Computed example of a mutant assay.
Amino acid sequence: MNIATFEELLIAASVQPQQQRLLLTFAVAEPEPDGAPGPQARSTLVPVMCVDKQVAELDTFANLADEARRMGQDWDVLLVTTLSGTASQLPDNEQTDAALRKMIKAIRHGQLERLLAFDRSGDLLHYA
């Protein structure tokens, strides 16, 4: 399945044979410290909020974005990955917390290959 929107990710996650927990990290784009100014400027993603959600807890990107807005923290990009459980059980809290810490570390090191990124409208972003 090709995923182009957040809602398509929810559909894909809901039809997996193993239960899925979504790991969500909201990040702001900050200019690289040694980067050149202007239109060629590069950004670094800095995590500002993270949460895990069961697929059933999410229905639309708009509702998730509204929940994030109520937290009062600005963000530019939503980075997402999944954590698989078993057919009958979601990953436990310890597994989930460890996976979130690993995800945040990967973002801080610019290792985004295993993450999907969505803009503030819920559309998939492509890495350059």
Rank of each mutant, 00 (worst) to 15 (best):
S121I: 06
P47V: 00
D119L: 08
Q95L: 00
V48K: 00
L78T: 08
L79K: 02
T25M: 07
T25A: 15
L100W: 03
R108S: 07
L58M: 06
S84C: 06
P17N: 04
N63V: 14
A99C: 02
V55D: 00
N93D: 14
E32R: 14
E30G: 03
G72P: 02
V55Q: 02
F6N: 01
M103S: 01
A99G: 05
L115G: 08
A106R: 10
A12V: 06
E32A: 09
G110E: 03
P91S: 05
M71V: 12
I11A: 13
I3Q: 06
K53P: 01
D74V: 11
D123H: 14
T81R: 11
Q95E: 09
E57H: 10
Q73F: 13
L10A: 03
V51D: 05
D92A: 04
I104M: 12
A13F: 02
H126Y: 13
N63D: 15
L78W: 08
N2G: 05
G110C: 03
K105T: 11
A68C: 11
N63L: 15
K53F: 08
D34E: 09
L64C: 07
M1N: 09
F118N: 02
F118R: 04
I11H: 11
I104C: 10
L22D: 02
A87K: 14
G85Q: 03
L24K: 03
D34S: 08
R101Y: 08
T5K: 06
T25H: 05
E57G: 07
L45S: 00
R69K: 15
R101T: 09
R21N: 06
A41F: 03
P47E: 01
I11W: 10
L79W: 05
Q18A: 12
Q18K: 11
L79I: 03
D59W: 09
G85N: 02
E94A: 14
D97Q: 14
A29F: 04
E67G: 13
D52L: 03
T96W: 01
F6Q: 01
D119A: 09
A99Q: 06
E94H: 11
L24P: 02
S121V: 12
A12L: 07
E30H: 10
D66V: 07
K102E: 12
G38N: 01
L22V: 01
A106T: 01
D34H: 11
M1G: 15
D119N: 15
L124R: 13
V55I: 04
R69S: 15
I3L: 07
Q111N: 11
E94P: 00
Q95M: 05
T81M: 10
A106C: 07
V55M: 04
A12D: 10
P39H: 13
E30I: 10
K105R: 12
A4C: 07
T5Y: 05
Q20G: 03
V46C: 00
A68H: 08
